[in-house]
Design a protein around this nucleic acid. Structure first.
Length: 154
DNA sequence: GCCAACGTTGGC
DNA sequence: GCCAACGTTGGC
């Protein structure tokens, strides 16, 4: 069972939006980065859990936990000219972009802020990908020890 | 294959 | 709104 971190801008889609969604489930679509695509397509498995991270907002941080309920399949928003994530280069017969479906497990009791995570960047979270300078990946792996440590902060 | 230009991300 | 980081694009 592996762990991940998924970034979302709460102005676009927040943890509360997920909590309000039917079956508290959503399709994680619109990812347009090859490394993140590979993770979605190849590595994320049903039953894996992920932190739901709020980025590009007033207080960035980890807001909740989600579970992968459907493994990688083609991102249909790439085929829709009306969609903001339309990619004319992606063809249904050879899809370029992938999604997974995630379900809310629970919101954290409180937001674990980026500020707070940084306080541990020299020790327990020395390799935490989201703390890396210039990190822009929207889908990143989280080790078991990092996962447990972050939850211990809660 | 190199690399400059450009666009996007994301914290501040 | 600014800017550093970094992925992508396209000319050569």
């Amino acid at each position: 069972m592996n762990h991940w971190l998924l970034k979302s801008e709460p102005g676009t889609f927040s943890i509360d939006d997920l909590a309000a969604a039917p079956r508290r489930t959503t399709t994680w679509d619109g990812v347009r980065n090859y490394q993140a695509r590979n993770t979605l397509r190849d590595s994320m498995k049903k039953g894996d859990t992920a932190f739901f991270y709020h980025s590009s907002c007033e207080i960035p941080g980890i807001a909740g936990i989600v579970r992968i309920v459907k493994e990688g399949y083609p991102d249909k928003t790439a085929f829709d000219p009306q969609d903001a994530h339309f990619d004319p280069e992606s063809d249904a017969s050879e899809p370029r972009w992938y999604v997974v479906d995630v379900q809310l497990v629970r919101k954290l009791k409180r937001l674990i802020t980026l500020d707070e995570l940084r306080k541990h960047a020299r020790k327990q979270l020395a390799d935490f990908v989201v703390l890396r300078r210039g990190n822009r990946l929207s889908v990143t792996p989280v080790s078991k020890t990092e996962w447990e440590f972050v939850l211990s902060l809660e």
